[in-house]
Design a protein around this nucleic acid. Structure first.
Lengths: 198, 198
DNA sequence: GGGTGTGAAACTCTTCACAGCG
DNA sequence: CGCTGTGAAGAGTTTCACACCC
């Protein structure tokens, strides 16, 4: 869905009015049948014989993905990766505002990064309430990850993007997405290794 | 497999000799049946009635994942994310050495980051050959991504970790892993949105 | 004609459950 | 007895192919 929305953005920029599943297939690499089924899952967005209205489908997808409204985000863990994400402009473009940054390292607390003052994790619950934060990005070390997640859940956050290389245990109703560089890069080295042998 | 290897590292550190699929299941969150099938896919590593030898299985998994040898990596695109990955120590621990960094921005070329001098992309093929680089990490803008990938493929690289939010077209035999923050964060906002409605 | 939406078939992945081995 | 390895069942996903509507 994300990919479709992004593609529609490009198509809209080049002035296309209507788009078929076949055309979407060319650009995204998914099969046309797959695309039609994905879209039909959420409603009847297409017109037979014509295709999908680029603008119409964009609005639908934005609503489905929840990017029709602004989300406030907390970032926990201001290491190299955390800093990079703070500076990353893509989030803002997608309707995500990083509203607060936290770290447990006393040397980092109080410093200013990309316009935000780093706060201690003890302030988390308070700030989440004040700023209406609903989503968190965790870029902590693996050892701290479960403890930080528990604090996040306690302060009412129910969606977390986790970069720490550790499988986290969360209660029902808390959604966690994991981005694990270890897994990605080991998958590549695995496929390179396979080729040595054949 | 990556996750299993990581878990075994922790178990080895605490001195465990042998581990069952049930214990691995507790720690990783995968079901015991899943774990047994995953491992049995690659060989008969376990002993019935006992479990898997922690050290033995570690060696097997390292070989399977190809992290029993050192890999040389090129990083292309020295923006915020690229810098963060250059400074990230996890790669070295896993046997990946970032041997060269490239960027097309003249202002960045020549600067030194984490001990590496940033080179222009025109030097790519030459340096890949000299340094024996087999793997690349792309942290370029989306617009440049396909062109950079084509250069990488031309210079002989056959495994790429892509952070640019664009689906890339690569010839047969070139393995691409995509890490797309857009997709991850939109998935979370989608699941938060669903909850508004129910 | 053109292209969606969707049953049905094919395929893949996961879980069950247990034979068989240490 | 304990735990792996694996057929078989079950669940989920993708592809096919075409009825149906614009």
């Amino acid at each position: 869905m994300s990919t479709y929305l992004r593609t529609l953005g490009l198509e809209a920029a080049s002035g296309t009015q209507s788009i078929s599943s076949a055309r979407l297939s060319e650009v995204t690499g998914f099969t046309a049948a797959q695309i039609r089924r994905d879209l039909a899952n959420f409603g009847h967005f297409g017109r037979r014989g014509v295709g999908y209205s680029v603008e119409g489908l964009r609005l639908e997808l934005r609503a489905i993905l929840g990017v029709d409204i602004e989300w406030s985000v907390a970032l926990i863990g201001v290491g190299n990766l955390g800093k990079a994400l703070l500076a990353y402009k893509g989030f803002n473009q997608m309707g995500f505002t990083i509203a607060a940054a936290f770290d447990n390292d006393q040397r980092k607390v109080g410093s200013t990064l990309s316009g935000l003052t780093v706060e201690p994790i003890s302030k988390l619950a308070e700030r989440v309430r004040e700023l209406g934060i609903q989503l968190a990005i965790m870029t902590t070390p693996a050892e701290a990850a479960q403890e930080v997640l528990d604090s996040l859940v306690a302060s009412g956050i129910r969606a977390v993007l986790n970069f720490a290389p550790r499988r986290l245990r969360a209660p029902e109703g808390v959604q966690i997405s994991n981005v694990d560089l270890t897994i990605e890069v080991e998958y590549l080295s695995h496929s390179l290794s396979q080729r040595r042998l054949s």
